[in-house]
Nucleic acid binder design. Structure first.
Length: 204
DNA sequence: ATTTGGATCGGT
DNA sequence: CCGATCCAAATT
Protein backbone atom coordinates (compact mmCIF):
# COMPACT_ATOMS: atom_id res chain seq x y z
CA UNK A 1 0.00 0.00 0.00
CA UNK A 2 1.36 3.42 -0.93
CA UNK A 3 2.36 5.70 1.89
CA UNK A 4 -0.47 8.13 2.51
CA UNK A 5 0.45 11.68 1.60
CA UNK A 6 -0.52 13.98 4.46
CA UNK A 7 -3.88 15.47 3.75
CA UNK A 8 -5.25 18.86 4.63
CA UNK A 9 -6.38 19.09 8.22
CA UNK A 10 -8.44 21.64 10.11
CA UNK A 11 -6.62 22.70 13.29
CA UNK A 12 -8.44 21.52 16.42
CA UNK A 13 -10.43 23.93 18.56
CA UNK A 14 -7.51 24.02 21.01
CA UNK A 15 -5.32 25.59 18.32
CA UNK A 16 -7.58 28.65 18.30
CA UNK A 17 -8.31 28.70 22.03
CA UNK A 18 -5.01 30.32 22.90
CA UNK A 19 -3.70 33.82 23.41
CA UNK A 20 -4.03 35.78 20.15
CA UNK A 21 -0.33 36.42 19.46
CA UNK A 22 0.49 32.72 19.36
CA UNK A 23 -2.42 32.06 17.02
CA UNK A 24 -1.51 35.06 14.86
CA UNK A 25 2.01 33.68 14.32
CA UNK A 26 0.89 30.16 13.60
CA UNK A 27 -1.87 31.16 11.19
CA UNK A 28 0.86 32.34 8.82
CA UNK A 29 1.19 29.74 6.08
CA UNK A 30 -2.18 28.12 6.76
CA UNK A 31 -4.90 28.29 4.13
CA UNK A 32 -8.27 30.02 4.25
CA UNK A 33 -11.00 28.40 2.17
CA UNK A 34 -14.42 29.77 1.32
CA UNK A 35 -16.97 27.59 -0.44
CA UNK A 36 -19.14 30.23 -1.99
CA UNK A 37 -22.20 28.86 -3.86
CA UNK A 38 -20.21 26.04 -5.40
CA UNK A 39 -16.98 27.97 -5.93
CA UNK A 40 -14.11 26.99 -3.69
CA UNK A 41 -11.81 29.95 -3.12
CA UNK A 42 -8.52 29.27 -1.40
CA UNK A 43 -5.72 31.51 -0.22
CA UNK A 44 -2.65 31.33 1.99
CA UNK A 45 -2.52 33.58 5.05
CA UNK A 46 0.56 35.82 4.90
CA UNK A 47 -0.16 38.67 7.30
CA UNK A 48 -2.02 38.90 10.62
CA UNK A 49 -2.47 41.18 13.61
CA UNK A 50 -3.27 40.17 17.19
CA UNK A 51 -5.82 42.09 19.27
CA UNK A 52 -5.85 41.36 23.00
CA UNK A 53 -8.93 42.76 24.64
CA UNK A 54 -9.98 43.79 27.15
CA UNK A 55 -6.61 45.34 28.10
CA UNK A 56 -5.55 46.23 24.56
CA UNK A 57 -6.98 49.64 23.76
CA UNK A 58 -6.59 49.01 20.03
CA UNK A 59 -9.09 46.13 20.17
CA UNK A 60 -12.79 46.61 19.53
CA UNK A 61 -13.27 44.75 22.81
CA UNK A 62 -11.13 47.27 24.69
CA UNK A 63 -12.24 47.74 28.25
CA UNK A 64 -14.48 44.72 27.95
CA UNK A 65 -16.86 46.60 25.65
CA UNK A 66 -19.45 43.98 24.88
CA UNK A 67 -21.83 45.18 22.18
CA UNK A 68 -23.85 43.69 19.34
CA UNK A 69 -20.81 44.04 17.10
CA UNK A 70 -18.16 42.70 19.48
CA UNK A 71 -20.25 39.91 21.00
CA UNK A 72 -18.63 37.21 18.87
CA UNK A 73 -15.19 38.16 20.21
CA UNK A 74 -16.34 37.02 23.66
CA UNK A 75 -17.56 33.68 22.34
CA UNK A 76 -15.75 30.42 21.59
CA UNK A 77 -12.47 30.44 19.66
CA UNK A 78 -12.27 29.45 16.03
CA UNK A 79 -15.22 31.54 14.91
CA UNK A 80 -15.20 34.46 12.47
CA UNK A 81 -15.60 38.07 13.52
CA UNK A 82 -16.41 40.04 10.37
CA UNK A 83 -17.14 43.75 10.55
CA UNK A 84 -17.63 46.64 8.15
CA UNK A 85 -15.09 49.43 8.26
CA UNK A 86 -15.23 52.88 6.62
CA UNK A 87 -18.61 52.08 5.14
CA UNK A 88 -17.19 49.85 2.44
CA UNK A 89 -14.69 47.25 3.58
CA UNK A 90 -15.19 44.01 5.42
CA UNK A 91 -12.46 42.78 7.75
CA UNK A 92 -12.08 39.14 8.78
CA UNK A 93 -10.88 38.15 12.23
CA UNK A 94 -10.33 34.79 13.84
CA UNK A 95 -11.66 34.71 17.40
CA UNK A 96 -9.12 33.20 19.81
CA UNK A 97 -8.59 32.52 23.54
CA UNK A 98 -11.04 31.23 26.13
CA UNK A 99 -14.73 32.07 26.18
CA UNK A 100 -15.07 35.46 27.86
CA UNK A 101 -11.55 36.56 26.85
CA UNK A 102 -12.12 38.79 23.78
CA UNK A 103 -8.99 38.14 21.71
CA UNK A 104 -9.01 38.08 17.91
CA UNK A 105 -6.59 37.90 15.00
CA UNK A 106 -7.16 40.18 12.03
CA UNK A 107 -6.35 38.52 8.70
CA UNK A 108 -4.57 41.31 6.83
CA UNK A 109 -3.26 39.73 3.65
CA UNK A 110 -3.64 36.60 1.58
CA UNK A 111 -1.72 34.92 -1.21
CA UNK A 112 -4.07 33.51 -3.91
CA UNK A 113 -4.12 29.73 -4.27
CA UNK A 114 -7.32 28.94 -6.18
CA UNK A 115 -10.25 30.93 -7.57
CA UNK A 116 -9.02 34.19 -6.13
CA UNK A 117 -9.26 36.77 -8.88
CA UNK A 118 -6.44 39.11 -8.02
CA UNK A 119 -3.64 39.85 -5.65
CA UNK A 120 -4.76 41.21 -2.32
CA UNK A 121 -3.16 44.19 -0.64
CA UNK A 122 -4.79 44.52 2.73
CA UNK A 123 -7.64 43.32 4.93
CA UNK A 124 -10.41 45.02 2.95
CA UNK A 125 -9.31 43.70 -0.42
CA UNK A 126 -8.53 40.27 1.00
CA UNK A 127 -12.15 39.77 2.05
CA UNK A 128 -13.38 41.20 -1.24
CA UNK A 129 -11.24 38.74 -3.22
CA UNK A 130 -12.54 35.87 -1.08
CA UNK A 131 -16.18 37.04 -1.24
CA UNK A 132 -16.34 37.32 2.54
CA UNK A 133 -18.74 39.80 4.09
CA UNK A 134 -20.67 40.39 7.31
CA UNK A 135 -23.10 37.65 6.38
CA UNK A 136 -20.38 35.28 7.61
CA UNK A 137 -19.99 36.97 10.99
CA UNK A 138 -19.98 34.37 13.75
CA UNK A 139 -19.47 31.37 11.46
CA UNK A 140 -17.45 28.42 12.77
CA UNK A 141 -14.06 28.35 11.03
CA UNK A 142 -13.97 24.58 11.46
CA UNK A 143 -17.18 24.16 9.46
CA UNK A 144 -17.62 23.57 5.73
CA UNK A 145 -18.39 27.07 4.42
CA UNK A 146 -15.44 29.17 5.57
CA UNK A 147 -12.57 27.43 7.27
CA UNK A 148 -8.85 27.29 7.96
CA UNK A 149 -6.69 24.29 7.24
CA UNK A 150 -3.10 23.15 7.16
CA UNK A 151 -2.56 22.38 3.47
CA UNK A 152 -1.93 18.88 2.17
CA UNK A 153 1.74 18.07 2.53
CA UNK A 154 2.04 20.51 5.42
CA UNK A 155 2.58 24.25 5.43
CA UNK A 156 6.08 25.21 4.38
CA UNK A 157 8.11 26.98 7.05
CA UNK A 158 7.54 30.72 7.34
CA UNK A 159 10.16 33.34 8.12
CA UNK A 160 8.11 35.61 10.33
CA UNK A 161 8.56 39.38 10.26
CA UNK A 162 6.87 41.64 12.78
CA UNK A 163 5.98 45.26 13.25
CA UNK A 164 3.53 47.50 15.03
CA UNK A 165 -0.10 47.24 13.96
CA UNK A 166 -1.53 49.40 11.20
CA UNK A 167 -4.08 52.16 11.70
CA UNK A 168 -4.39 52.06 15.48
CA UNK A 169 -2.68 55.32 16.46
CA UNK A 170 -5.68 56.14 18.64
CA UNK A 171 -4.61 53.38 21.05
CA UNK A 172 -1.74 55.27 22.69
CA UNK A 173 1.04 53.03 24.00
CA UNK A 174 -0.80 49.93 22.82
CA UNK A 175 -0.22 51.09 19.26
CA UNK A 176 3.50 50.49 19.81
CA UNK A 177 3.14 46.80 20.57
CA UNK A 178 4.69 44.76 17.71
CA UNK A 179 1.69 42.53 17.16
CA UNK A 180 1.58 42.53 13.37
CA UNK A 181 3.09 39.37 11.86
CA UNK A 182 3.86 38.60 8.24
CA UNK A 183 5.63 36.19 5.92
CA UNK A 184 8.88 37.96 5.05
CA UNK A 185 9.09 36.11 1.78
CA UNK A 186 5.60 36.78 0.45
CA UNK A 187 5.04 39.50 -2.13
CA UNK A 188 1.40 39.65 -1.06
CA UNK A 189 2.00 41.27 2.32
CA UNK A 190 0.05 44.54 2.40
CA UNK A 191 1.95 47.56 1.20
CA UNK A 192 1.95 50.45 3.59
CA UNK A 193 2.54 54.03 2.54
CA UNK A 194 5.69 55.77 3.73
CA UNK A 195 3.62 58.15 5.87
CA UNK A 196 1.74 55.33 7.59
CA UNK A 197 4.96 53.38 8.00
CA UNK A 198 6.62 56.30 9.74
CA UNK A 199 3.58 56.95 11.96
CA UNK A 200 3.47 53.30 13.00
CA UNK A 201 7.24 53.13 13.42
CA UNK A 202 7.62 50.32 10.88
CA UNK A 203 11.09 49.74 9.50
CA UNK A 204 11.34 50.23 5.69
C1' DA B 1 -32.71 61.49 17.79
C1' DT B 2 -28.40 62.95 16.34
C1' DT B 3 -23.53 62.87 15.94
C1' DT B 4 -19.10 60.77 15.37
C1' DG B 5 -15.44 58.40 13.58
C1' DG B 6 -13.44 54.09 12.11
C1' DA B 7 -8.28 47.45 12.74
C1' DT B 8 -9.13 50.88 4.58
C1' DC B 9 -7.88 52.06 -0.04
C1' DG B 10 -6.58 54.45 -4.17
C1' DG B 11 -5.87 58.59 -6.25
C1' DT B 12 -3.42 63.61 -5.84
C1' DC C 1 -3.32 64.49 2.14
C1' DC C 2 -8.22 63.50 0.82
C1' DG C 3 -12.72 61.55 -0.24
C1' DA C 4 -15.69 57.55 -0.56
C1' DT C 5 -19.57 55.53 2.15
C1' DC C 6 -22.41 53.61 6.14
C1' DC C 7 -23.09 51.58 10.35
C1' DA C 8 -22.56 50.88 15.33
C1' DA C 9 -21.69 53.17 19.35
C1' DA C 10 -21.66 57.13 22.05
C1' DT C 11 -23.87 61.15 23.24
C1' DT C 12 -27.73 64.40 23.83
Amino acid sequence: MATARSTAVKPPRAFFAREARAVACELLGLHLIHCDRGTRREARIVETEAYLGPEDLAAHSAGGRRTTRTEVMFGPAGHAYVYLIYGMWNCLNVVTAAVGVPHAVLVRALEPVANVARSTWGPGLATRAMHIDRGLNGIDLRGDTLWIERPAGGARPVRIGRSTRIGVEYAGSWARRPWRYFDRDSPYVSSVSEATRRRAGIAP
